[in-house]
Design a protein around this nucleic acid. Sequence first.
DNA 1: CCATGAATTCATCACTTGTAGAATTCACCC
DNA 2: GGGTGAATTCTACAAGTGATGAATTCATGG
Lengths: 198, 198
Amino acid sequence: MARSGRRPGESGARERIAASAREVFGELGFDGATIRGIATAAGVDPALVHHYFGTKQRLFLSVMSLPFDAAALKTQLLAPGLAGVGERLVRFFLSVWDEQPSVRPILTGIVRSAMTDPDAALLLRDFLGRQGLFQLVAAIAPNRAEFRAVLVGSQLIGLAMARYIVGLEPLASANAEDVVASVGPAIERYLIGDLGVA
Amino acid sequence: MARSGRRPGESGARERIAASAREVFGELGFDGATIRGIATAAGVDPALVHHYFGTKQRLFLSVMSLPFDAAALKTQLLAPGLAGVGERLVRFFLSVWDEQPSVRPILTGIVRSAMTDPDAALLLRDFLGRQGLFQLVAAIAPNRAEFRAVLVGSQLIGLAMARYIVGLEPLASANAEDVVASVGPAIERYLIGDLGVA
DNA sequence: CCATGAATTCATCACTTGTAGAATTCACCC
DNA sequence: GGGTGAATTCTACAAGTGATGAATTCATGG
């Protein structure tokens, strides 16, 4: 098989490694993924992965970042007014998972890895915290915004786990709009409703 | 160190191994846990774990079962009538995590492992499916009971992840009754409310 | 008091993992 | 066209994994 040494032309190996890493991390989580597996999926020697990305942790952090424009999403969700914001948020959330095949393994990988790896848990905290959901919630309901944001996050992550990671039926193959109609109002209450806490 | 051979008296090693296994599986999940780690925590040679429980999978399945009486819970939750059943379910759910130190690592371990291990995902499916939540939901709302049960499960699991596994603040250190007041109505809507789906 | 069997540990195997360093091949600039 | 550096693979190490089989010590019934 392929001998040592550089290949003629541009091989795009670095991008192939990054893509494979996203896929494998998404399927198996940080611990389950192996550098050798990622390298094989990229058609590349394992040492090349280290050459480009250093350690496994650095590879994970380099590759598992969300292209997520919280500000743009905020205006988009709030443009039609406050009513129905919960359904619009759920609809957006589902569309990311369902329609963007590049983002899905990243989300899956972060959630899977956050279960056991503290670094991945930090990523998840940021995604729900200052960088992500909190911004949106703070613009809608300034009082108790952190609490509301985490409630919304817990329902969304639970939804993702059930529908996409564990694959619980009949939710996994339910129509997206049915999920929006079912979960949207609960999210909306977390966002702008009365939580019943003093 | 301890020589080979049987010890005088009853050592209770099997129970110590089971307890350690629950703890370690709970902290690290199935993949992260090691037989050597479990054995060390139990003060025992790793081979003894295999002697008693065979393979690692069988150890996990032997040890990670929930002492969960769905029928009793059903009557208890429904006794005061249908109103407030959501809050009572959340209160019960939180009390299991907060107050029963023996059950907590089992739940944590199942959720953590279900992320990557298909066998653990089966345990989770059973816990939410025919054995557990579905029974309760079917007694309350016969129509679309599976869908309702999975919605309830997704919110409860998301809540557990945020509060107990990832430790998202301010939810992780929130008062239990505040969580009940916040999440209970959402659960109640999933249980007996109008889901807005045809 | 002896034999059978259970409890416990030792030593070890085969395998996988992350990582490092050396060696080889190519691109590109002076 | 030679030299510097990047791309790529090979080889290998040290550590850790689940698992196995034999050896040792105790309990217990006949």
